[in-house]
Design a protein around this nucleic acid. Structure first.
Length: 683
DNA sequence: GAACCCTTAAACAGCT
DNA sequence: TAGCTGTTTAAGGGTT
């Protein structure tokens, strides 16, 4: 007798675990009940101490039940308040069932509710005081009553939804969609509340030792929720909610299944109102309420775009069925991925994936927030040293930004070129890119492995670097090269290079002596920069071959890393830059975003890419090959050669590249910025 | 640990 | 003479 009771806690846990794989048992206390009565629990020896422990557990269970009731009351009040504020739910339901909404959460917790059979066993197995028994029985009756109310609530909820659907059918299409969306939103909110309540309950049970959760199943407490969310009634309910508007749309059941998926996900994401499986809908970390209307709109705008369809293949997890066209895909989706047990199970799996990702994302968010907080605190400390180098977080200081120059305007978050921190919406403007520039660990990835990504990065974050006093994560050599290559003649005077720096980067509007010295130093140091005398004076050009030679070509990389970086590619420009850096490190050119982001620089990037592809080919094939045609300086005449100890094989290349400036009038395009006083305020 | 790269600082010379 | 330009050296730190 006591052997079974001794396994009570474990059995609860195992029941939960079984539920995680078996499906819709949550609302069905009977399954658990029958399992208990059939004596499925393995016999375990229980001693007197265990008995006392069990009695204690029972008392704890009573406390839990009381807490649960309190939570239900609180939840009910919250729901009523939400309904009053949002007005999302129909007043009819409020009138009819103001107190019946809460028991849904009770239903979600049925695995933890002591069934009459269990109670009977407890009574048989344990010695309880009459008072305890009485209280226990009262609690149990209350819980059972709650369950009945829950079922009743479900039915009434269904009826109300049907009524509302009927009413909606008489309304116009647009209001109807909105109403359906509102219905679904309210529904999702309810599910969310249920889940939160259940999580609290599960946690309390777990804390009190009433629920044993096996290690290695961290998402387990969430599992019964989602399963409980998909009983037959719920599916039918959902179908009814969505059927009205889906019947008029070509996508048909897609919405049904998709929206259900959305609901499942949202139900498992307590911190978010709605989580969207569609990756296009939740980029940049900004959550948007996902309504069928929005989705339908997006489908209307892109009638053949579907998050589950791409490249002629069904993207349903584990499917990959080839669909010739969109209608066939829809047909396939409706037939193969209808709302059935298999689909819901797959949905659950996908939910778990999303949960894990969310968990990871939350951790990373937290970490990033801590980092940013830490750095922000540091950056707000009074700057005693006049050296702003490595103080990228100064961008967060509006004071320093305003002092920097008139261009250092407050950043508008809507500026597309402003690097957006996707994982945080805090006030700080520290970006992922700028994080690279923190302290001495600043990474310089622009010219690693000789793959110039500067133009792409600059194109991406052009406006950002112009306004934010953030040190660009590029080397001086890369920047100089970029400045020169941006010029029409691919040659610049030193002063023009200076101006380019100050024009493109707010960071270089300070401490001119330092960075100008560095520019000069780099120009002289690197063989890739060739000084050319012309009428106007001396100009600097770039020897691409030498630039590529600065470091050996290295093709290595972790494909998974590349893939991961690619997945984060869409988040923001800084991540894009990081991605490009990664791609660069793996010798994978990536300029598409730059091309899309900025036409001018994008074209330049493409040109550079083509140029460098050729240059890299030359570099890879033969270092001494400085073949004409790969450089715009091919037609110039050398007048000055940097005297550097060159290898015999290197001696030919740079020589042919040294140019004579054939200065054209429109070379003065940079002159527009030369007279800008932007670089004067920091000297 | 060595080699290489990058940055920063500084000194120096030539030129305007 | 001051400032700019260009070169060179050195030190420190990071990366490979």
């Amino acid at each position: 007798m006591m052997q079974e009771s001794g396994t009570e806690t474990k059995s609860n846990g195992s029941a939960l675990q079984n539920g995680s794989s078996s499906g819709n048992h949550l609302l069905e206390c009977g399954s658990l009940r029958e399992g208990r009565s059939n004596g499925e629990a393995p016999p375990v020896d229980v001693g007197a101490a265990d008995l006392a422990h069990i009695q204690q557990q029972q008392q704890q269970a009573l406390q839990v039940a009381r807490q649960l009731l309190l939570q239900q009351q609180q939840q009910q009040q919250q729901q009523q308040q939400q309904q009053q504020v949002s007005g999302l739910k129909s007043p009819k339901r409020n009138d009819k069932q103001p107190a019946l909404q809460v028991p849904v959460s009770v239903a979600m917790m049925t695995p933890q509710v002591i069934t009459p059979q269990q109670m009977q066993q407890i009574l048989q197995q344990q010695v309880l005081s009459p008072q305890q028994l009485q209280v226990l029985l009262q609690q149990q009756q209350a819980l059972m009553l709650q369950q009945q109310q829950l079922q009743e609530f479900y039915k009434k909820q269904q009826e109300q939804l049907q009524l509302q659907l009927l009413q909606q059918q008489h309304a116009g299409k647009q209001p109807k969609e909105q109403q359906v969306a509102t219905q679904q939103l309210a529904f999702q909110q309810q599910l969310l509340q249920m889940q939160q309540l259940q999580q609290q309950h599960l946690l309390s049970l777990q804390r009190q030792g009433l629920l044993t959760i096996q290690p290695g199943q961290p998402a387990l407490p969430l599992q019964p929720i989602t399963q409980g969310m998909i009983p037959t009634e719920l599916q039918q309910l959902w179908k009814e909610v969505t059927s009205a508007h889906t019947a008029e749309e070509t996508t048909g059941n897609n919405h049904s299944s998709l929206d259900l998926t959305t609901t499942c996900v949202s139900s498992s994401a307590p911190s978010k109102t709605s989580l969207i499986i569609n990756p296009h809908a939740s980029t940049n970390g900004q959550l948007s309420v996902h309504t069928p209307k929005r989705e339908s709109l997006s489908h209307e705008e892109h009638p053949h775009s579907h998050p589950l369809y791409g490249h002629g293949v069904c993207k349903w997890p584990g499917c990959e069925a080839v669909c010739e066209d969109f209608p066939s895909f829809l047909k396939h989706l409706n037939s193969e991925h209808a709302l059935d047990d298999r689909s819901t199970a797959q949905c659950r799996v996908q939910m778990q994936v999303v949960q894990q990702l969310e968990l990871q994302l939350a951790k990373d968010k937290e970490r990033l927030q801590a980092m940013m907080t830490h750095l922000h605190v540091k950056s707000t400390e009074p700057k005693t040293a006049p050296q702003p180098l490595n103080l990228v977080s100064s961008v967060t200081l509006s004071k320093s930004a305003s002092e920097a120059s008139p261009q250092s305007l407050p950043h508008t978050p809507t500026t597309p070129t402003t690097p957006i921190t996707p994982v945080t919406q805090g006030p700080s403007v520290i970006t992922t890119t700028s994080m690279h520039t923190v302290g001495p660990i600043r990474r310089r990835y622009s010219d690693k492995y000789n793959v110039p990504i500067t133009s792409a990065d600059i194109a991406q974050n052009q406006e950002f670097y112009k306004n934010a006093e953030v040190r660009p994560p590029f080397t001086y050599a890369s920047l100089i090269r970029q400045a020169i290559l941006e010029s029409p003649e691919k040659q610049l005077t030193l002063n023009e290079i200076y101006n380019w720096f100050t024009r493109m980067f707010a960071y270089f509007r300070r401490n001119a002596a330092t960075w100008k010295n560095a520019v000069r130093h780099n120009l002289s140091l690197h063989k890739c920069f060739v000084r050319v005398e012309n009428v106007k004076g001396a100009v600097w050009t770039v020897d691409e071959v030498e630039f590529q030679k600065r470091r050996p070509q290295k093709i290595s990389g972790n494909p998974s890393l590349i893939k991961n970086m690619q997945s984060s590619h869409t988040y923001c420009a800084p991540l894009n830059a990081a991605l490009q850096a990664s791609m660069a490190e793996n010798s994978i050119p990536l300029y598409t975003t730059a091309s899309m982001g900025n036409p001018t620089l994008g074209n330049l990037a493409s040109a550079i890419r083509e140029e460098l592809n050729g240059a890299m080919e030359h570099t890879n094939s033969n270092e001494s090959d400085s073949s004409p045609g790969r450089s715009p300086m091919q037609a110039v005449h050398p007048v000055h050669v940097k005297e550097e100890p060159l290898d015999p094989e290197e001696a030919e290349g740079p020589l042919s590249l040294v140019t004579t400036a054939n200065h054209s009038p429109d070379f003065d395009h940079d002159r527009d910025y030369e007279d800008e006083p932007v670089n004067e305020d920091m000297e």
